[in-house]
Computed example of a mutant assay.
Amino acid sequence: MSFSPDIGIDLGTASVLVYVKGKGIVLQEPSVVAMDTSTGKLLEVGEQAQRMLGRTPGHIVAVRPLKDGVISDYDMTEKMLKNFIQRVTGGVGLFRFFKPQIIVCVPSGVTEVEKRAVIDATMEAGARDVFLIEEPIAAAIGAGIDIAQPSGSMIVDIGGGTTDVAVISLGGIVESTSIKMAGDKFDEAIMKYMKKKHNLLIGERTAEEIKMNIGSAYHRDKDIYMEVRGRNQLSGLPEIVKVSSKESLEALEDSVVQIADAVHSVLERTPPELSADISDKGILMTGGGSLLWGLDKLIEARTGIKVYIAEEAISCVVKGTGESLKSLKHLGRSTNSRRR
């Protein structure tokens, strides 16, 4: 008998959420790792490492080991996962003897090679057994949708690296698409806009603050403003610029239109019977990116279908992944699972 807990992991580009069977969500940390390049020593993982982004001396590097929803730095991802798994399983000693079963969430559009990288990294991080589940399925389960019913449900999951759009019926994905346009690309668009429009250089964290405070995907009835600090690229000196929500809409317009186009594209390919179900029930949005102001209104205007944002949009995927721990035996031993 094993005393190790079953674990569900939402391995996101922006953050990692960990669900332990019987306990719920026990960890939510940024997907950032800091290490000393001169010694190869791991310094910080998660929140502490994120604080170092853009502020490190030459011999220390703080990196995001995942990009666009997939692993871009295998070694760093393995170290990050090992750190998080040890935190939730009671430390190194217990972890050495009782290895957990882990189910990891991946975007619906990942290749077999990318899936293999996730499985291998999780195994090397200390798992006894690894399973994969696609994000739209996990998001739907986490939002309380009974995916086993012969009825169409549309999920739009917008994370940090990817947006997954899927129509689900009878427990499987009928039509889907996954695009590399999500929260991180929103930040990049804001950084480019500030540089082009205001000659102001800002970092990722400042861009994220703009997105969260005044970011807009649809016209607001009343503009709101925010003071933004950065460095003037002409003078090289610190500067404060007042930015409006109207400007953020201008900065994000191309990005959010790509997401609306992806939703429209999946709807066009959806069988008529399922389209009717979606028209009745509406479209469900999950993930941190779905909280961008007005994105639901934009998709609703584009499709003519009511759009809802899940109550706990950020944690839907990891909750669904955690719920799936109850039925690991039904996931089967396919190319999406591996055992020691």
Rank of each mutant, 00 (worst) to 15 (best):
N83R: 14
A121H: 04
G142W: 04
S275A: 12
I71G: 05
D254E: 15
V70D: 01
G152R: 11
L132D: 01
A148P: 01
P238A: 02
P5T: 04
F95T: 01
F131Y: 15
P57A: 05
I102N: 02
R116H: 11
R302K: 15
V156K: 07
S38Y: 02
G289P: 02
V318T: 09
E253T: 09
R269I: 02
M80C: 04
P5F: 05
K222R: 12
I210C: 05
E239I: 13
E188W: 08
P272K: 14
M76H: 13
A34L: 14
D221H: 08
S153N: 14
T37P: 03
S235C: 02
I155N: 05
E227I: 08
L284Y: 01
G172F: 09
A207I: 01
A313G: 03
L66C: 06
V104T: 11
E78R: 15
V18K: 06
L298T: 00
D184R: 11
D280V: 13
S216Q: 14
H219A: 14
I158V: 14
G288M: 09
V317C: 12
T13H: 08
F95Q: 12
M194V: 03
I71E: 08
G288S: 06
A49E: 01
L27R: 13
S153K: 09
V263G: 00
R269N: 09
I214G: 07
V130H: 01
I85H: 03
A301F: 00
K329I: 06
P150D: 07
V104D: 09
V174W: 04
L295E: 01
E134S: 10
N199Y: 15
H264V: 07
T162I: 11
L42T: 07
K222V: 10
R340Q: 10
K115T: 01
V266E: 10
K306D: 08
R128E: 12
L237T: 12
N83E: 15
G304K: 08
I168E: 02
G161A: 13
R205G: 05
S2A: 11
K41V: 15
D164I: 01
G294P: 12
L325R: 06
P5L: 11
D261L: 10
M226T: 07
G93A: 13
V241T: 05
D223H: 10
G289M: 07
I102Y: 00
K246W: 11
G183L: 03
E124D: 12
E47I: 04
A121N: 02
F98R: 06
R229H: 11
A207M: 10
Y74A: 09
K99L: 11
V307H: 09
K211V: 08
S15H: 15
A49G: 05
I190C: 03
E44K: 14
T13V: 10
R96D: 13
G22K: 07
S279C: 08
G159N: 06
E134K: 10
G236V: 00
Y225R: 06
G109W: 00
S72G: 04
E188R: 13
A34D: 09
I210L: 09
I214D: 06
P57W: 00
W293N: 13
